[in-house]
Amino acid sequence: MKLVSRKHTEKFTARFFKACGFGAGSVLIALSLMLVWNAAAFFIHVKPYDFVSKTQWDPTGSPSAYGMLSMLISTMLVAVGAMLIAIPLGIGTAAFLAEYAGRKLKNMLKPAIEMLAAIPSVAIGFLGIVVISPGLAGLTGRSNGLNALNGAILLSVMALPTIITVAQDAIDGIPISYKEASFGIGASRWQTLTQVTIPAAAPGILAAIMLGVGRAIGETMTVLMATGNAIALPHGFFDAVRTMTATIAIEMGEVPFQTTHYYALFSVAILLFIITLVINMIGEYFVGRFKKFEIR
């Protein structure tokens, strides 16, 4: 009886997880089809090339304008700025925790870093307004510091817990025999870290970076609060910008249903989806190549 019961349990469990997998895939397909359907209704009225190549976004104007190049560049500017800060700081912190920090220090720092992920994005955006913005305003001599650099700093803070945690796990997962072999030929701890451990952990570190990029591009509330929301082509990190996610969040709540403006926001969403998909595919490609890495 126990054997029969175990077989039934295992069969039920296998079917349950299979159903969960199909359910998740079905939700993804349904969302993709919804985005494509609504975006197609927009591109009947506006050419895709005009949509991605023009800089003026004025859906309520006469005539209306649906050019989102400035928002695309603003999104990339903020995301790139965030990664320029978060990647070296995150990987350096992960390497320190994995290879240099003592047990007591690691037990203190690791929970503190992970707690950063629990801070609501609206709270981080508020800190950007009241703390970082005045500092940037004083540094640049402008009336306020609500600009792309402010958003990049805040997004780097939000991406750090993911990058540090995943990268540290990747470094910790390297077999101890690799390090012992390196020490055995006279390499220092720093040489072992930079020439053996980090290259061997490259797939996990790259995965951490990709997750951080995804967090930076997809974040909404923080950039909505801290970047100034100016729909204009930015010329640097000190210009006010509006990202694609902020545009959707600001305008979707008050746009008339099933209008060209309404469908335009779905077009912004599907472009954001495509960008994220391409980034993930590039990450998967390089992860696959790094997995072939062998220490000789």
Rank of each mutant, 00 (worst) to 15 (best):
K7A: 12
H8F: 15
H8T: 14
H8P: 12
T9K: 06
F12M: 12
F16A: 12
G21V: 05
G23F: 09
G25M: 04
V27F: 00
V27A: 11
V27G: 11
L28W: 07
A30V: 09
L31M: 10
L31G: 10
M34T: 11
M34G: 12
L35W: 00
L35M: 05
L35P: 01
V36N: 03
N38E: 02
F43W: 09
I44P: 14
Y49E: 14
W57F: 00
W57H: 08
W57T: 10
P59A: 08
G61L: 06
S62Y: 15
A65P: 13
Y66Q: 12
M68Y: 14
L69A: 13
M71I: 03
S74E: 06
T75G: 02
M76F: 08
V78E: 01
A82R: 00
A82N: 01
I85E: 05
A86L: 03
L89A: 12
A94P: 02
A95V: 09
A95P: 07
F96R: 13
A98P: 04
Y100K: 08
G102W: 14
A112M: 06
A112I: 04
I113K: 13
I113E: 06
A117N: 04
S121T: 09
I124W: 02
I124M: 02
V131R: 03
V131K: 00
V131W: 10
T140E: 01
T140K: 14
G141P: 09
N144E: 00
N147G: 02
L154D: 10
V157E: 00
A159V: 00
L160Y: 07
T162D: 03
G173E: 03
I174V: 11
P175Y: 13
Y178M: 12
E180I: 03
E180K: 05
F183M: 13
I185S: 13
G186Y: 07
A187K: 13
T194F: 15
T197A: 05
T197E: 06
P199K: 05
A202D: 08
L206R: 08
L211I: 03
T222W: 07
L224Y: 01
T227V: 00
G228K: 12
G228R: 13
N229F: 01
I231K: 12
A232S: 12
L233T: 13
V241L: 12
T243Q: 04
M244G: 09
T247R: 10
T247P: 10
M252E: 10
G253W: 03
G253F: 01
G253N: 10
G253R: 15
P256K: 02
Q258K: 14
T259F: 00
Y263A: 04
L265E: 14
L265N: 06
S267A: 06
V268N: 08
L271R: 09
F273G: 08
I274K: 01
T276Y: 11
T276M: 14
L277F: 14
I279S: 09
G283Q: 11
G283C: 04
V287D: 09
V287Q: 14
R289G: 06
F293E: 15
I295D: 13
R296W: 03
